[in-house]
Design a binder for these strands. Structure first.
Length: 940
RNA sequence: GGGCCUAUAGCUCAGCUGUGGUUAGAGCGCACGCCUGAUAAGCGUGAGGUCACUGGUUCAACUCCAGUUAGGCCCA
């Protein structure tokens, strides 16, 4: 029997291809990358697109201090989709990737690794190590990005630590200085009194510390006259603090405008008075204070207290009542001691009320002469004396010690303080910068749309931009301090001179030369005409550097164009790169650097939780490439809507891998059936194709339209769903399944067969082209297996994007949709028959259709089509009701009843259809009349 | 604590938006079966959802409004 089977199998046109079913991507992808490198694919793309209109996606530089994670990979892959799509669509879409190289994390890492040695090293030495560190991770990440199949100018990426880039940053800074945005003022920063240095937030560690916890009273000297008249008593605000040493710097008391405050008649040490505190805060502080309360005398809304003036507890100066939203119900009395020189929130409150930023504390943490009575004392040591002084003056209501979490220095582990120091700022009000930014935001296209509201809100409420940092690894702020008058000199002229030096030597020159060598010859202090200067020690906020990337990168020398068509980053960049690029751009060029900004969400695990090392739910790109392949990673990116947060887990990858296999197998089957197809000689035009082939091409045309529109809107998940659905439902389960008979049974050259092959060829080439930006490796591999005449380019990535076909046939569409509904019912009926065990394949069955009048006529006319798409041995049409089991389909013009039964006759050994005429050919007694004819045609 | 966002079958997505109104759709997965001429493939059928929760508007809400819960980003 096996021999018999083989005998006829050999006469069939079964699929044949070298394109493997198993992808084995982890091995094949690196080989494909090798081939791309050999042919220098990116250069080929650039050359072939040189004359086309330009599309600029400006790459946001990732930070060069880690291996990439899945989120970084997703970002790059999304950009690659856009670049590859735009390229195929006919644009010149160059991709110049970049890296952010300066900044604290690298400096932090380098200094930590050095340990104690760091203290003996010079700034240039540390900077050199930082540079090496950054370069190392640039190289590592570069390889990781290439492994993902991302094309770009990897040989010459832009690095924020390159000389040219640094020169551009200084040049942008010069513009900003020239236009008057930059000013200098005091601002509190974390300060380590033992290291005598400012600390960044990331350098602060929290640890327990024993502190005082005291309540004190501030006597009202102005305002609340009615209350005073009514009671004839002194009025006090009650205040809580754990840092008595900041009291010499007290300049105000802050209350929450929305809280209710209550005034209580109470006596303290025998003296009567009125004490004010927040209504909500009675329970905690009251028992602690040694007050005997007699009753409520008044209540106020917080906002009513603005303008009241109290007296400083031990200095002869006012401490006005101010309003601040940050005043909380957590602890204290709802009346907050405010020292603008010693706290971030106090500072902002102070700025709002025009209070001085008083900081009577020097670098070593000792009081200056401004803290009268405490000059020279170390702040933490002075605490007991201040408490004592308060007690003596009768201001102290209670005192105890508490252990609480307090910031400490990451290096020396000592408690740190908040201390106002001179910092540089860019004013967002200068030249209406804030307003212009808001206008520019309105003129930019934000995807998703809510991005606009988000960045708008941030711009509306943002304070001036503090651009100075007390670090080493970055671009120095070229400030010169006059040795004679102490003035900080920063002008267009000095910055301009420095910029020229940077263009030749990089910013390292700042650390290698003396101040005089960095200034124009004979430069004199504009204030006092002195000629001796020292260098300022601050660097620029790295956001100013990355915010200048559009200026450094989108240049003619790079064959790019300013502004960019697109920025595409995570939604955290509304505050970061988008906003600060916009501000730099408006300062320098008075326009936004982007036309459209797209954001993606964040990487979550399968349970929708953030990925973190501590949770242990991190999946690395390498792991995915190793287990599944970069194409699976890329396909996973398309499987979810990136505008929201997207999940990554092995379950999800498994699901995507499954979809991939379906797509790959569909491609493989199509390739296999084109093994003997020469499109130049065998292809049929649409009009001459079989109806079924025309029908599937019309459905495929719909798919193309959908896919192209999804690419345009950057809704890649629509592509994934549409293509996968088409491959699984329309191609695999329906079209390819039903045309197997035609492909296998007829003579190779039979027009009916060539018609199917023509349709397959059209769809296959287009399927590969529309998937090329996503499945970069698989489509390339499959492209190489196409019949030669279909191979138009050296690589599929040099191909053009598909276009929506011009052919159409509305009548055929409508008619075939009806036939498909009959097919749906036939499947159910056939399944029922199969359950009885009478038949296996649909080929073992006959379909019997019942209909009357025009419906019957319709069915009779389309009998062959119905037979084809249901893959039964025969279809019979009759009038009447039919017998059970029967299914019914209602149409506008009639009803069709469908039933099935076991086929009569005998099963043909070649085509497996049942026929009453099996055996009529003496040479082939097991074969039906159709196969007998084919066999004689092919000479068997 | 504030701003912005998300929440539809086990999973990934449609539908909902400035136009509320038939039994809320698809694919995957799953279950059961078929095939063995796409074979570490292929085909068929089927079971899965009180559209996060609560309240409101309305004759009518997955769809509009308010709040709650959970999660995310950015701040504090």
């Amino acid at each position: 029997m096996g021999a018999q089977k083989d005998k006829y199998s050999r006469t069939l046109n079964l699929p044949k291809t070298d394109f493997p079913m198993r992808a084995n991507l982890s091995e094949r992808e690196p080989q494909i990358i090798g081939r791309w490198e050999e042919m220098d694919i990116y250069r080929l793309i650039c050359e072939s697109s040189a004359d086309r209109p330009t599309y600029i996606l400006h790459d946001g530089p990732p930070y060069a201090n880690e291996y990439i994670h899945a989120g970084t990979a997703m970002n790059k892959v999304l950009k690659d989709f856009v670049i590859k799509y735009q390229t195929m669509k006919g644009m010149r879409a160059p991709y110049l990737p970049g890296w952010d190289c300066h900044g604290l994390p690298i400096e932090h890492k380098v200094v930590s690794e050095l340990g104690e040695k760091a203290k003996e090293m010079s700034t240039p030495q540390i900077r050199r190590l930082c540079r090496e560190h950054a370069q190392k991770y640039v190289d590592i990440q570069k390889e990781q990005f290439r492994r993902l199949g991302v094309f770009g100018k990897w040989d010459e990426p832009y690095l924020t630590m390159n000389k040219d880039y640094e020169a551009t940053v200084i040049s942008a800074f010069k513009e900003v200085v020239k236009k008057g945005y930059v000013y200098r003022t005091l601002k509190p920063v974390y300060w380590c009194t033992s290291c005598e240095t400012a600390l960044a937030e990331a350098e602060v560690e929290y640890a327990h510390l024993e502190s005082y916890s005291i309540f004190l009273r501030f006597e009202v000297v102005e305002g609340l006259d009615e209350l005073r008249k009514e009671t004839g008593l002194p009025i006090y605000f009650t205040v809580w603090t754990t840092t008595p040493w900041t009291l010499p710097a007290n300049l105000a008391i802050a209350v929450n405008p929305n809280f209710k405050y209550i005034a209580l008649r109470a006596s303290f040490k025998g003296q009567e008075g009125v004490y004010i505190l927040a209504m909500e805060m009675l329970e905690d502080p009251l028992p602690k204070m040694e007050l005997s309360v007699q009753g409520e005398v008044a209540t106020f809304k917080g906002s009513e207290l603005e303008g009241v003036v109290a007296r400083h507890p031990f200095y002869d100066r006012p401490s006005p009542l101010v309003l601040a939203d940050h005043v909380s119900r957590e602890q204290g009395t709802g009346c907050v001691h405010t020292a603008p020189g010693h706290g971030q929130e106090d500072y902002l409150t102070g700025v709002r009320y025009g209070l001085p930023i008083l900081t009577p504390v020097d670098n070593r943490g000792c009081f200056t002469a401004e803290a009268e009575g405490f000059e020279g004392r170390y702040v933490f040591d002075a605490d007991p004396d201040i408490v004592k002084l308060l007690d003596e003056k009768g201001r102290l209501l209670s005192s105890e010690t508490v252990s609480h979490s307090y910031p400490h220095c990451w290096r020396c582990k000592n408690p740190i303080i908040f201390r106002a120091t001179e910092q540089w700022f860019i004013s967002v009000e200068n030249l209406d910068l804030r307003k212009r930014a808001l206008t520019a935001v309105g003129e930019t296209e934000w995807i998703p749309r809510w991005g606009e509201a988000r960045i708008e809100g941030m711009l509306q409420s943002r304070p001036d931009w503090c651009i100075s940092r007390q670090r080493h690894w970055g671009v120095p702020i070229p400030v010169f301090i006059c040795q004679d008058c102490g003035r900080a000199v920063l002008s267009e002229q000095t910055v301009g001179h420095f910029q020229e030096l940077v263009a030749g030597h990089g910013v390292d020159v700042w650390y290698e030369r003396e101040a005089e060598e960095l200034l124009p010859e004979g430069f004199k202090c504009p204030e006092c005409k002195g000629g001796a200067f020292s260098k300022g020690g601050d660097i620029l906020d790295v956001w100013f550097e990355s915010g200048s990337s559009h200026l450094a990168v989108l240049t003619e020398e790079n064959h790019l164009r300013w502004p960019a068509d697109l920025y595409l980053e995570g939604s955290d960049q509304h505050r970061g790169w988008f906003q600060l690029s916009l501000l730099v751009s408006l300062c320098v060029k008075d326009a936004a650097p982007f036309r459209k900004v797209v954001t993606h969400g964040f990487m979550l695990d399968g349970e929708g939780r953030a990925m973190s090392k501590s949770r242990g739910n991190v999946i690395s790109p390498e792991e995915i490439e190793e287990k599944y392949g970069a194409d699976i990673l890329r396909l996973w990116v398309t499987s979810e809507d990136y505008r929201e947060d997207i999940s990554l887990s092995f379950d999800l990858l498994e699901q995507v891998a499954e979809a991939y296999r379906r797509i790959r197998n569909t491609i493989r089957f199509m390739l296999g059936n084109l093994s003997d197809f020469d499109p130049l000689k065998d292809a049929l035009p649409f009009e001459r194709m079989e109806e079924l082939d025309r029908y599937i091409l019309l459905l495929f045309k719909d798919l193309k339209r959908k896919v192209l529109s999804a690419y345009e809107r950057m809704e890649f998940h629509q592509i994934y769903h549409a293509v996968h659905n088409f491959c699984a439902v329309h191609l695999s389960a329906f079209y390819l399944n039903t045309i197997k008979d035609r492909l296998y049974i007829y003579a190779p050259d039979d027009e009916r067969r060539r018609s199917a092959q023509s349709a397959i060829a059209l769809m296959l080439v287009d399927l590969l082209r529309m998937l090329a930006p996503i499945l970069v490796f698989t489509t390339e591999e499959a492209y190489g297996h196409l019949p030669e005449a279909l191979l138009r380019k050296e690589s599929i990535h040099l191909e053009e994007m598909v276009q929506v076909d011009t052919f159409e046939d509305e009548e055929l569409r409508v008619r075939w949709e009806k036939l498909m509904r009959v097919r749906q019912e036939a499947n159910i009926v056939l399944e029922e028959l199969r359950q009885t065990g009478e038949v296996g394949n649909s080929q073992d069955a006959h379909l019997r259709l019942y209909a009357d009048g025009p419906m019957k006529e319709f069915l009779t006319k389309n009998l062959e089509h119905i037979k084809d798409i249901t893959v039964v041995s025969d279809v019979l049409v009759e009038e009447g009701e039919g017998v059970s089991p029967v299914r019914q389909v209602e149409f506008d013009d009639g009803t069709v009843r469908v039933t099935a039964e076991k086929a009569g006759g005998e099963k043909c050994a070649r085509c497996w259809m049942w026929s009453s005429r099996v055996g009529s050919d003496r040479n082939h007694p097991q074969v039906c009349e159709r196969c007998s004819e084919v066999l004689s045609e092919i000479g068997k």
